[in-house]
Amino acid sequence: MKQSSSVEDTLKSATERLTVSGSESPSLDASVLLCHVLDKPRSFLLTWPDKLLSIDDTQAFEQVLQRRIKGEPVAYILGQREFWSLPLQVAPSTLIPRADTERLVEIALEKAPQLPGDILDLGTGTGAIALAIASELPKRQVWGIDVKEEARQLAESNALKLGIENANFLCGDWFTPLEAGTQFALIVSNPPYIEKNDPHLTQGDVRFEPLSALVAQDNGLADIKHIANQAMGFLLPGAWLMFEHGYDQGKSVRDILSALGYQSITTYKDYGENDRVTVGQFSLCQKEK
């Protein structure tokens, strides 16, 4: 029978195998997965490098390691991803929350105090954006809508586990679950915005994520155009509409909002200095056109 390996040797071997498989963060992946199997913090790996793994732990680690070697995202293997310091359950039916999307939350929190009223997150997925905003603005009601019922249930479960009581989730296609006359002070969305032939769809973690949450027609702009047009019926005068979008779509989104009469249109960069979030302010004269 093979002798048990130490924590240090296990991490070294796993890191080498993940490097060969093409992981962009092999050492981190190995550490996170081993912590998950051992149910220990990362400090344990540093404190007890010579500790031998049990046979059960070795087998369990090999199983999750094989999944990562095949390219499955760590977040799906763990069933969890942190976003805005909130531990969120994730599932293959939803996108994995990403750090760049925190820029959308930051800008939403800057704009939200300008006008009282509820806040809407379209295409909420895990509920990441809605829950981040709701956690920072406990006196505001935040609504999240997703076309998938399983996503709505996941977002609702995340809210319950986090104890966030001012977040509400509905199932439907964009604005369809809302009653006529419902208005919001802020509408945010990270909609599908990738063009269907984009080569990134066959690379990295994206290969395992749902295409319906990634790809849009019309060079990736179809859903943004639809939301921007329909949002005019659900925004209070002076309210803000904001989108996360692709790094090369800033001008296109500005043009879409400008053509519809939105004001104070601005594009913000993400942490990598790429265009990532574009906002526009709704005016009453838009509705009168």
Score class of each variant (00 low, 15 high):
L260W: 01
L95M: 08
G261N: 03
P210A: 02
L221N: 06
V253I: 03
G272T: 05
E110Q: 14
S252Y: 04
S85E: 13
G204F: 02
Q203P: 10
I55D: 13
S21A: 15
D255P: 04
G246F: 04
S54T: 13
W143Q: 12
Q89R: 15
L78S: 08
Q249W: 02
F184I: 06
L115G: 06
P177V: 06
Q217R: 13
P113F: 00
S27R: 10
I187T: 06
Q183V: 11
Q66T: 11
A259T: 09
G117K: 00
W48A: 14
H200M: 13
E288N: 14
A185W: 02
L28E: 11
T94S: 15
G250N: 04
S25A: 14
N229W: 13
A14T: 01
G280Q: 07
G250L: 06
K225L: 13
D146W: 03
R207W: 05
I227A: 07
L86N: 08
K51F: 12
E288V: 12
T19L: 12
N158D: 10
K51D: 13
L201H: 03
I227R: 06
M1P: 14
D100P: 07
D9S: 09
S4P: 14
R17V: 03
A134P: 09
N158F: 03
P192S: 03
S252I: 00
P191T: 00
I227F: 02
V253C: 12
L221Q: 07
G220I: 00
A128V: 00
K269V: 12
K287S: 14
L88D: 08
D198V: 01
V147W: 11
V253N: 10
K287L: 15
C35Q: 08
A134Y: 02
V74N: 09
L201D: 08
G172Q: 09
C171R: 09
M242F: 01
T176P: 10
V215H: 08
V188D: 12
M242V: 01
Q203M: 12
Q63K: 15
Y193G: 10
D255I: 03
Q249L: 08
D255F: 01
W143L: 14
L160M: 11
V105T: 00
D56K: 11
H245A: 10
D275V: 00
T94E: 13
W174Y: 09
I69D: 10
L104P: 09
D146V: 06
E179T: 09
S25M: 11
L109C: 14
A185N: 05
